Amino acid sequence: MALAGWDETRPLLVCPLCRADLQRRSDGLSCLDPECVHHAPSAFPVVGRWPVLVDFESSVVTRDSALSPEGRTDTGRSADGLPAPLRRLVKPLNHVAARNVELLLRALPGQKPRLLVVGGATVGNGVDAVYRDPNVQVIGFDIVTSPVTQFVADAHRIPLRSASVDAVLVQAVLEHVLDPSSVVAEIHRVLKDEGLVYSETPFLQQVHAGAHDFTRFTASGHRFLFRRFEEIASGPVAGPGTQLLWSMDHLVRGLTRNAVAGRAARAALFWLRALDRLVPADFALDDASALYFLGSKREREMSAGEIIAYYRGAQRSG
């Protein structure tokens, strides 16, 4: 696995609040700036091998939850209660992500480029190639510890130096943050000039992750979220058939009051997913289950007129 080591990651870390350098203390890390509130000893505790670089005053992450043994570790194990064959029907390989990640990897510059995974407690569906590529240094973080992350952080304040990474992967994360625009601004900040971003975000999906699910985006809304990026590719991750599967899953959950029953119904109706291939691209954009965006960093923002003209769905007049 191509995870960057601590010696490679440590020089990139900064205070999430003021972005000053960090210093090592016996019980954790703290900010070097004496005027910063995080200059105090143990401002950033270390849990196991993971420094917790969170400004708790501005985050939904609390110090207690970050340090609690019950709630701070993500092992990446499935908890849906279904046998492995049914799990594969419920959540098949994301071929769109696999294709786009290959595009991203081919576009990365030079030797040992750094790729940041935002919300990387588990290896995302279809992005395994990122972790297998020996030429890439993968840096990952999430609000919980994980074998595939180097630190704990809140994506609203990424504790990395500006212009320090060559690419960012943010898959199925932006719906779970309070302010997606602030997170994308942070992604823009930590990327080098012309750095790459790959994002997947739901459009028509029911609530998942309970209280930590906040936002959905249309294709135009998703594009405007990344308005300070040049588009390389974008489109549906999954279309109306997959969207219908989500609805059937949650309808059965509601009728039976049982999440496993809903997932079983999704597995039984797996063939609906094949209908995605029959829907023209413009109709799929208006009824997608999820959307992707692959782009490169730029300084100029899209204007209001540009985002209106950007619409490529089936409801164009004339």
Rank of each mutant, 00 (worst) to 15 (best):
R189V: 00
R223W: 00
A284Q: 14
L105F: 01
W50R: 06
M248C: 06
S146P: 05
M1A: 07
A153T: 12
D249N: 08
R216I: 11
G119P: 04
G81W: 15
L22I: 07
S181C: 02
A261N: 05
R72G: 15
R19F: 00
G241D: 04
P109L: 09
R257D: 15
G221F: 05
R106T: 09
T145G: 02
V96K: 03
D142L: 09
V136E: 10
S247Q: 09
V177F: 06
F151T: 02
D179W: 09
A79H: 12
I139M: 05
A43C: 06
G119A: 11
M1W: 04
D133Y: 00
D55G: 02
P240E: 07
D80Q: 12
C31V: 05
F56E: 08
A274L: 14
F226N: 14
D286H: 07
Q23T: 07
V237G: 10
R228D: 15
L178N: 05
A238L: 04
L294V: 08
G120P: 01
V136D: 12
L245W: 01
E230D: 05
Y198G: 13
L115P: 00
T256K: 11
F203H: 14
S234N: 06
F270C: 08
S58D: 04
F224I: 01
A2S: 15
T62D: 03
R300T: 15
V190S: 09
G119Q: 01
F214K: 09
A267Q: 10
A288I: 06
S317H: 06
D142Q: 12
V54I: 14
L86V: 14
A2V: 05
A79N: 09
A155D: 13
P134D: 13
T62W: 07
G81A: 10
L191P: 00
V14K: 13
S26T: 08
P16I: 03
H208Q: 13
T201H: 09
V279A: 10
V237K: 08
A265Q: 11
R49Q: 12
Q205H: 03
L196V: 03
P11L: 03
L272H: 04
V237F: 00
I307A: 04
A281N: 10
I187L: 10
A209S: 12
F141Y: 07
P83S: 11
V60L: 05
R223H: 08
A153I: 08
D179N: 06
V190G: 01
V279P: 15
A121W: 07
E57M: 00
S65W: 12
V90W: 15
E194P: 02
R99G: 11
S78W: 01
L86M: 15
V183F: 09
E175C: 13
S164F: 04
D249S: 11
R99K: 14
N258R: 07
V130P: 00
R72T: 14
A219H: 07
F283D: 01
D286R: 04
A121L: 08
P69K: 07
R161N: 03
V165R: 03
I187S: 02
E230R: 11
S58N: 15
G71Q: 10
E70L: 12
E35W: 01
S234V: 02
R253Q: 14
